[in-house]
C-alpha cells in the first residue's frame, strides 16, 4: 500500500503514490475505507471478491474529477447502502480521465465491519491527480 494520511486541521488528507493509475486509484479507495472503518478495513483486502460483479464506467473532464467520482461512488455505497467494495478490477485511462471495469459490492456487516467515522463528503479542496507512464500521485481531503 502506498498511501499516507496528511495532517489537516479538522479532517483527513490522503496522499497516494503508485506506479500506475490503477494502483493509485485502488489505494485511494483503500485509504478511504481505512478512514471509514479504521484498521479493520484490512479485512476488505483479505476478503477476496465477494458478491456479484457490477460494471463501473466513469469519465470526467480531468483526472482529479475522475478521482473524486471514484471515491464518491465508494462513499455513497457505504453510507447509503451500507455496502463496501470487497474487490474490483479496473482500468484507468489517465489521458482521457476514464475508468471502467467491475466492482464487487458486499454488505459491510457480512465482513464484520462497523463504521468508525462519519465522512460527509470527498472535497474538491486541494484535489490533485497527476499521472504519467512512470508514476501516479493523488491527493484528496475528506470532510469528517
Amino acid at each position: 500500500m502506498t498511501y499516507r494520511f496528511t495532517d489537516h486541521t479538522a479532517d483527513y488528507g490522503v496522499e497516494v503514490y503508485a506506479f500506475t493509475a490503477e494502483e493509485a486509484f485502488c489505494d485511494a479507495a483503500r485509504a478511504l475505507y481505512e478512514i471509514l472503518y479504521g484498521k479493520n478495513a484490512a479485512v476488505l483486502f483479505r476478503a477476496g471478491h465477494q458478491g456479484a460483479p457490477a460494471p463501473v464506467r466513469m469519465e470526467e473532464g480531468t483526472l482529479a474529477d475522475l478521482l473524486h467520482a471514484w471515491l464518491s461512488l465508494h462513499l455513497d455505497r457505504c453510507v447509503q447502502d451500507r455496502r463496501v467494495a470487497s474487490g474490483w478490477r479496473i482500468r484507468v485511462d489517465f489521458r482521457r480521465a476514464r475508468l471502467e471495469g467491475e466492482i464487487y459490492m458486499t454488505e459491510a456487516a457480512k465482513l464484520g465491519l462497523t463504521l468508525e467515522r462519519e465522512v460527509k463528503a470527498v472535497t474538491y479542496h486541494d484535489l490533485r491527480a497527476q499521472a504519467s507512464l512512470e508514476k501516479t500521485t493523488l491527493h484528496y481531503i475528506v470532510d469528517v
Binding site: 495532517d7 489537516h8 486541521t9 483527513y12 469528517v144
Partner: peptide, 8 residues
Amino acid sequence: GRVLSRTA
C-alpha cells in the same frame, strides 16, 4: 475552534 489535526 480546532488547533490540532485529527491525526495529531
